[in-house]
Design a protein around this nucleic acid. Structure first.
Lengths: 197, 197
DNA sequence: TCTATAATCAAATTTAGATTTGATTATATT
DNA sequence: AATATAATCAAATCTAAATTTGATTATAGA
């Protein structure tokens, strides 16, 4: 009979972004439901109408962040670009995605650990994390196989690159000297040169 | 008249290490004084005999970690090695210091942010952080000036290197495929090649 | 041996904050 | 217009910890 979601006064997406922002700024454990609620002009209790718990909020943030960036990276990874251009372009979309949603990305990178003892969540998180890593690994291995890249220890190379990319979310300032794309280009250059390009 | 520190049953250093371990494993805010105390066979209340608060414990950990690594890096930075060898050696001592005290390093990297809103602490932390960054900056700039290194954007290069080095504390496992020094060598190689060496 | 103080503990105190509960208000469908 | 349900709120509950308090125990130095 008669009813229906009341034209979503507050979209879950907005709550998720607010949560990410507070998680990133304060850390998961010191973030309060009241702070998150305030960002979307709600009270703490009202959040429970949309998410069953604070933990579920973080799970949603992690999932959104990892899904988004993996999608973007995959789109490039699946093109036919030669390895050097492909790697450069992947770094670009990675950094763009990271900085477009810097709170979400920051939460994924720094607060994901907070749930590493919740079995179900942990596994899902690690699976998504690995999926992204595999995309990078594929590009680097292809490039080495095709002699576009000089041989390196792929495991260490990937982790080094991830560390560098993740760290951008820590130091990036919108008002900084360089644009996102200039930053991406510089970082891509560092790693491509180290691969002999 | 008669008294004296009762032959330090539990050394403050041991408490500091225990705190770092718990901070690293669980995060500052979800770490409990009881957990930290348990690691040194004390009760939560007893910790207050040695440190005035949980926050002070973190401050002590941050200070110890940053001081230690800065000292180690400075020792190499002040040698007369040519830039390429110097940078390689710095990466080695950095990673050695980081992995010798991985809990302390992890706390510095991931939990320092927890105190970023305590003014006095924040400034001290940032000052030490900058000091370390300056050591790196000096080496890279010297190398570029002497033409040992090709020209790069030094700011981005340093941040990229720091991100990579910090990230080692996340993925390193003592039982892993490579030793600390092999890892350091591989990472140093990546960045040196990107500088044209 | 004696005594002051350090080191410790168990238990009490406090507080912050997640979650629940029981209304109240707004609106989509009939 | 009528009504079921969504969305919200204010206030109550509950709980986990940080910190405090008031002993108790051990020991260095006299």
């Amino acid at each position: 009979m008669p009813r229906r979601p009341a034209e979503q006064t507050v979209h879950p997406e907005a709550i998720l972004r607010a949560a990410a922002s507070v998680f990133h700024r304060r850390g998961f454990h010191s973030a309060t439901m009241a702070e998150i609620a305030a960002e979307v002009h709600l009270t703490a209790g009202s959040l429970y109408h949309h998410f069953p718990s604070k933990e579920d909020l973080l799970v949603a943030v992690l999932d959104a962040g990892l899904t988004e960036i993996t999608q973007d990276v995959r789109a490039v990874a699946e093109t036919e670009l030669p390895p050097p251009q492909k790697l450069r372009e992947i770094v670009h979309v990675h950094i763009r995605s990271e900085l477009d949603n810097v709170h979400i990305a920051g939460a994924v990178i720094f607060e994901g650990r907070a749930l590493l003892d919740v079995p179900g969540v942990r596994d899902q998180y690690i699976r998504q994390r690995d999926e992204l890593e595999q995309l990078y690994r594929g590009v680097v291995e292809d490039g080495i196989a095709s002699k576009d890249f000089s041989a390196v220890d792929v495991g260490i190379f990937i982790k080094t690159l991830f560390g560098a990319l993740n760290w951008v979310s820590v130091w990036y300032r919108p008002a900084g000297r360089l644009s996102r794309d200039e930053i991406a280009d510089e970082i891509a250059g560092i790693f491509l040169r180290s691969l002999g390009c």
